[in-house]
Simulated scan of single mutants.
Amino acid sequence: MLRIYLNKKLNRLEMQIIIDKNRELLPVGNMKWTGSKVSAVEFGYALHTSLTINRGNTDIKDIMQFIEIFFNIDLGDYYRTYIAIRRRKKDRTEFLNSLIDGLIKKWTMIMKMDS
């Protein structure tokens, strides 16, 4: 159990080093994910299953690492979070649905302003 614990700590430290190195290469300002980690994981898995990145030839690990670096967030054990999302009873795509609702509301407001 100690070895597992230490391996997890070492992996997080290595990930932080990668994030710190790559943050300088990204052409973004101080973009920070301010939603929940669960929402970021839901977003990452949605990107992965949509096959829209590298024509679907991208590993989930690469997508999650990109989200962590780009949005300056530590997703932790994203697979465990994914399992929890799959087990949701009420709304398994809560974050994605909120994106859709927000976009539709924006379009509705614009249409009302145009008429």
Rank of each mutant, 00 (worst) to 15 (best):
M1K: 06
L2D: 03
I4W: 05
Y5V: 05
L6I: 10
L6E: 07
K9M: 09
L10D: 10
L10H: 04
N11Y: 05
N11G: 04
R12N: 00
L13N: 06
L13Q: 11
E14M: 05
M15P: 00
Q16N: 06
I17G: 00
I18C: 09
D20V: 06
D20R: 04
R23P: 03
E24N: 10
L26F: 10
L26T: 13
P27K: 11
V28N: 06
V28P: 00
N30E: 13
M31H: 08
M31K: 06
M31C: 10
M31T: 13
M31P: 05
K32W: 01
T34S: 10
V38T: 15
E42H: 05
G44M: 04
G44T: 04
L47W: 12
L47I: 12
H48P: 03
T49S: 15
L51R: 14
N54P: 02
R55S: 15
G56L: 03
T58M: 14
D59K: 13
K61M: 08
K61I: 07
D62G: 07
M64R: 04
Q65C: 12
I67D: 01
F70A: 10
F70M: 07
F71Y: 14
F71D: 12
F71L: 02
D74T: 07
D74M: 07
L75Y: 01
D77G: 07
R80L: 12
R80D: 13
T81A: 02
T81E: 03
Y82L: 05
Y82P: 01
Y82C: 09
Y82G: 03
Y82M: 06
R86E: 12
R88A: 02
K89H: 14
D91A: 13
D91H: 09
E94L: 13
E94R: 11
L96P: 00
L96H: 08
N97C: 02
N97I: 02
S98R: 07
S98T: 04
L99A: 02
I100C: 08
G102I: 01
G102K: 05
L103C: 13
L103E: 14
K105H: 06
W107Q: 09
I110M: 12
K112C: 08
M113R: 10
D114S: 11
D114G: 00
